[in-house]
Amino acid sequence: MKELNKNNPFKTPEGYFENFTDGLLDKLSEEKLNLPKDDGFAVPEDYFDGLHKNIQQRLDADETKVVQLHPYRKYYLAAASIAAIVLLFFGFNWNTPKELTFDDIASADIESYFESNELGLTTYEIAEVLPVDELEINEILENQFDEENVIDYLNENVDDIEDLNLEDYE
């Protein structure tokens, strides 16, 4: 515990607590107590005669209107909760990324997937799956390959270009 403050201004006389009970009992045994002779409270005349009647009149009286301290509080709470729900709804939908579809994938990504993952199918099995009936010969012939792309593809995938027997290759 903390050390008591030595500069306490309140002091008791010496021997006060040893003689306290004796002094209290002496004062109580004296005949003359310093108590007032009359009561400190006075009741008006005929108070108890009309008490029942007054209470009954007050009970029969119409109830007074109770004025609420915060009458619009429930409306404020309802509006705040609706606003919070709307903000949460738009907040989650605003940051939600758009779902990817097949059209969003670049053709280069599709080609790189097929190049990096082995399908386990032979070219004959793939040809059986492709719908040849729906293809027209014009669609195949109209696809013109860029010469630069063909040369880049051959450079990447063919070990010896001279084995291809190309006449005008430079």
Rank of each mutant, 00 (worst) to 15 (best):
N54R: 07
P36K: 02
D146T: 15
N7K: 06
S29V: 04
L88T: 14
A84H: 04
D26N: 15
F10N: 06
L130V: 13
E18P: 00
D109C: 01
M1W: 09
E162K: 03
D49W: 02
F20S: 13
I126N: 04
A108F: 12
N138Y: 05
L77E: 15
K32S: 13
Y72L: 11
G15H: 15
K6H: 11
E147D: 11
D168N: 13
T123E: 09
D160K: 02
L4P: 01
V129S: 04
F10W: 05
N165K: 09
L141N: 13
L166G: 12
L25C: 05
I140L: 15
L28E: 10
G120R: 01
S81N: 06
D160C: 01
I137M: 08
L35Q: 08
K37G: 08
E14Q: 15
K53Q: 12
E30I: 09
L166E: 07
K11V: 09
V86K: 13
D26M: 10
E125C: 06
N155S: 10
A127F: 06
F114H: 05
Q68P: 06
P97V: 02
N149R: 07
I110V: 11
D159C: 00
D168L: 05
P71A: 14
L35I: 08
P36H: 01
I161N: 10
F145D: 11
V86Y: 09
N143C: 05
D159F: 02
T21I: 07
A61W: 04
T101Q: 14
A61V: 01
V86P: 00
F48T: 00
N19M: 04
Y75R: 13
N143W: 03
K32W: 12
L59T: 00
E115C: 02
K74N: 11
K32Y: 09
E134M: 11
K27W: 07
L100E: 09
P9C: 06
L77I: 15
D22P: 00
N138I: 11
E148A: 14
D26H: 04
L88G: 15
P13C: 14
G23H: 13
P44S: 13
M1Y: 13
L130G: 01
T64P: 00
N143H: 10
F20W: 05
V158F: 03
F17S: 04
T122H: 07
N155H: 12
A84C: 11
S116F: 13
V66Q: 11
P71C: 05
E148T: 06
H70M: 09
Q68S: 11
E3R: 12
D39Y: 13
T122A: 02
F17H: 03
F10D: 01
F102R: 02
G120A: 01
G50E: 07
A83M: 10
D163K: 12
D133A: 07
D133V: 05
L87F: 14
V150T: 08
L28K: 14
L121S: 05
D46C: 04
K74W: 10
D109P: 00
